[in-house]
């Protein structure tokens, strides 16, 4: 049994002379919410269009549901639902008619319409014309359209693009529910890390058409969070610096009036605090800084720029 629902091998694609994808390798495990990350212009949309058979596969191999895409396009599409950026809604028709039209084309049973309306929570709004729909509702109707044929795989290209925070949340919760309750594999592309971070189980990060990272989100975190940094401000940084080095703490290059110490865990933060106070110093600020996915992402996709923006996260203690 093939554990991967989407596999690409050495996938390359170019628009004229401009090469968009270079030997892209993707392995999307069944049952995952697969976050497909990359900055704008990284080749995400091109990849998705190839996966859906909208663009030809010029070089390399693409297998979806274990079948070769060039030979079994229709079989694959029958088991795949998609939403590419903005959903295709016929604005002069009601939500129900949009679903009905799509239903006829994918030959789903009539009863399926009520089911998908229920899933996306649009039962009440189905008789309204879709031009009256909010962006979030349109997006949910788009997902309902993709669900009509009961696909095992959902390919969603930037589904939260342009939505307000509550719309983003609606769509995100829907995605998680589809995966958890209905066992759908979801291939989710985004340039918003915060989005992917909150629901994906697996991620691939691509830039300039090549895969930079692929694996579980946990692994990615483990690789990042080993370097926690504690930032300190005290009444006398020079003494604090000396005290800490004497006690074998690892100090990082100092900037301005802030001391930066490498710490392993939260307990150590408390220990340092107590230690400094016992030694007669006033501690004005203690804050930990962890590199979050955002920075990691920038780090991975933009290796040339050495400086990673430091963000002040959760102050541990303020005296």
């Amino acid at each position: 049994m093939n554990p991967f629902i989407i596999e690409t091998h050495g996938l390359s694609y170019s628009f004229g002379k401009h090469q968009v994808l270079h030997d892209l390798e993707l392995r999307v495990p069944k049952g995952a919410i697969f976050g497909f990350l990359g900055p704008n212009g990284a080749g995400k949309s091109t990849t998705i269009r190839i996966l859906l058979g909208l663009l030809p596969v010029p070089k390399g191999q693409v297998r979806v549901h274990g079948q070769d895409l060039t030979e079994h396009r229709l079989d694959i599409l029958r088991r795949t639902g998609s939403l590419i950026e903005m959903p295709t809604l016929y604005r002069h028709l009601s939500g129900y008619d949009n679903l009905e039209m799509h239903r006829r084309m994918v030959q789903a049973p009539q009863s399926r319409i009520a089911e998908v309306l229920q899933i996306v929570g649009l039962t009440k709004d189905a008789p309204r014309k879709t031009k009256e729909y909010s962006l979030g509702m349109s997006q949910r109707l788009g997902i309902a359209l993709a669900l009509l044929s009961e696909p095992e795989l959902l390919v969603l290209d930037e589904p939260t693009n342009g939505l307000d925070p509550s719309g983003i949340r609606e769509v995100r919760e829907l995605i998680v529910r589809l995966n958890r309750d209905f066992g759908k594999t979801i291939f989710l592309s985004s340039h918003l890390l915060s989005e992917i971070e909150k629901c994906a189980t697996e991620v691939a990060i691509i830039d300039k058409g090549t895969t930079l990272y692929q694996g579980s989100l946990q692994q990615l975190y483990q690789g990042t969070f080993q370097s926690n940094v504690l930032q300190l401000e005290t009444s006398n940084n020079a003494i604090a610096h000396k005290l800490l080095t004497d006690h074998a703490y690892q100090l990082l290059p100092q900037q301005d009036d802030v001391l930066a110490v490498q710490v392993q865990d939260r307990q150590q933060v408390a220990k340092i605090n107590r230690f400094l106070i016992v030694n007669g110093l006033e501690v004005y600020r203690l804050s930990t800084h962890t590199q979050n996915l955002e920075e990691l992402f920038l780090n991975i996709t933009n290796r040339d720029s050495a400086t990673v923006p430091m963000s002040e996260s959760t102050p541990v203690l303020k005296p």
Binding site: L54, T88, H102, M105
Partner: peptide
């Protein structure tokens, strides 16, 4: 064209 529907139509399981 208005609904940007071509991508959607061609990604359906229809020849």
């Amino acid at each position: 064209h208005r609904a940007n529907g071509w991508k959607h139509l061609y990604a359906l399981p229809l020849p």
